[in-house]
Design a protein around this nucleic acid. Sequence first.
DNA 1: GTGAAAGCGCTAACAA
DNA 2: TTGTTAGCGCTTTCAC
Lengths: 329, 329
Amino acid sequence: MTTAAHRPATLEDVARVAGVSRSTASRVIAGTGFASPAARKQVTAAVDQLGYVPNPAARALVRGGGVRLVVAVLGTSAAVLDDPYVHQVVGAAARVCTPAGVGVALYRLPFGDPRSLDQLDGDRSVCGVILVNTTEHLLAAVPRSLRGRVVSIGVGSATVPSFDVDNAAGSEEVLRHLYASGRRRIAMVTGPRWLPCAQRPVQTYRRLMAEAGLPERILPGDFRAARGRTAAGEALRRWPDIDAIYAISDDTALGVIAGLRDAGARVPGDVAVAGFDDIPLAGMTAPALTTASHPVGRIAVAAATALLDGRPAAPVTLFPSALVARASA
Amino acid sequence: MTTAAHRPATLEDVARVAGVSRSTASRVIAGTGFASPAARKQVTAAVDQLGYVPNPAARALVRGGGVRLVVAVLGTSAAVLDDPYVHQVVGAAARVCTPAGVGVALYRLPFGDPRSLDQLDGDRSVCGVILVNTTEHLLAAVPRSLRGRVVSIGVGSATVPSFDVDNAAGSEEVLRHLYASGRRRIAMVTGPRWLPCAQRPVQTYRRLMAEAGLPERILPGDFRAARGRTAAGEALRRWPDIDAIYAISDDTALGVIAGLRDAGARVPGDVAVAGFDDIPLAGMTAPALTTASHPVGRIAVAAATALLDGRPAAPVTLFPSALVARASA
DNA sequence: GTGAAAGCGCTAACAA
DNA sequence: TTGTTAGCGCTTTCAC
């Protein structure tokens, strides 16, 4: 029974109760170095008698390990930090970091300020950085001393490993599905132009349209539903014969469907709509959304784990994306 | 120009470059204690010449402050840690904690194990705990030495301040809206029975139904869309004359709408549906969802800030909820 | 196999 | 006002 001491126990306390030295206690608790079975037993007993929990801060201090994993999001405004996608990354990272005694921090990297990473570089409490919404420009600005402690969700570089969904393959599958169901006038609502990882689906779209001899119809977007809604109107106006819209995200797609409805077009009757992400609500809307899966949580977990392990990660880790065919396309 | 040293600068380095002692440097950087304008200038110069960033771990160690803020979620399975609502709390908390050099950790408190908080109690790196999905039982098990460092999003207690949305008032507004638009056979899909903060809207529902002399029709839910969908079918079967369903969350409400559609009932023609939360997608669905606002982010920010400040918070901080009338009711 | 001692980077008395 | 001195809790050589 832990008589929850008013002061949390320290290693010193454990050592005293176990009748050994701090060093020995440290060894058995950290699981490093030798210790006799006897000592081991004493220490373990003392530990749970005292309810001892090692202090990660002290540990990090002496080992130079760091206590925070930073999720750094590139964005023009602080609003990016309120994004559900970002929150999902933070949540997943926090979950894996917790057992390691590491906390998660959430930074915004101001757009066009390559030196914004220096702050993280000089912070000894930072054990790693997960870049979100990276650009090549930012990647090039990663300080030397940060190398090996930075990964990217999205595009990577020679020094920054990338963890991302295979959105090229996912997009291709969605697009082929559209084609297979007879659609021939397919528009795409994209992500922000400056975001490299959002360009891959666009390239796939272009290639497939070219291969099929179909016209290329691209509308810039921003991942958000509101933009999808306006984009749908634009699409209808510019290309009255349109019969499908592929949106870069489910949020966008849902907005597109709303915009189509606003304009009196039926989905999928007149225009088929497909998204990308497979958010939890995708199966609940009317019509249910056809999309491609996007395991954000697993990606974030992998990225955080790589950082925590400290082992050099593969340059690129791609997570498969699969078509989820529902009613909208 | 910060010649990004391969080794991050320490206070020692700053002091040396500034030509002062560590203490002086510490004083001006931490903003505590006295320092001559001259010294102040030297130190500041040295700081940005070296790109110095204080090490929160070392700082926490000596001040006994802690480097992690824990979001502790009560739940039967580890799946609760994947919940978008939880992620939103974690994200918002991370955002406010970051400038303070504090990271966020995400724990699950296993259901029915009151001692699960002891671990946090004995961890000196924990500067505070935000309880999510609390029960009175858990609240009663908060160790003495943790008091003052724990807040709750949801119900609180004499020793644990509560930060929550005013869901009683919000629910009342939604329900009155339903009544005002002529609905008289109103069912409610609730949250889990064991969750106290989910009972308040139910009590409000009961009171209002009783006052209006209307029948009470309650269906248990779990905040999730899938359950909303099945609940809609049940409602229709048990109460064929039903003309409105109030769901405890938007996810649930969207599921209810899907379930109603499955059964061939029109929304809001046959049955009006209202939710609670006002999630970003609520305005995009067909029909657009009538709901009440729920400022989760602001609540989490307030909770985290209270912990960071260390000042005793008010026993209860209620955040207003307002009706958002759209098409579904 | 175990303990003594040195320090990780920082703050906070206490003197000067 | 400033510097000196002690640690915060822990890991880790290095002798024993």
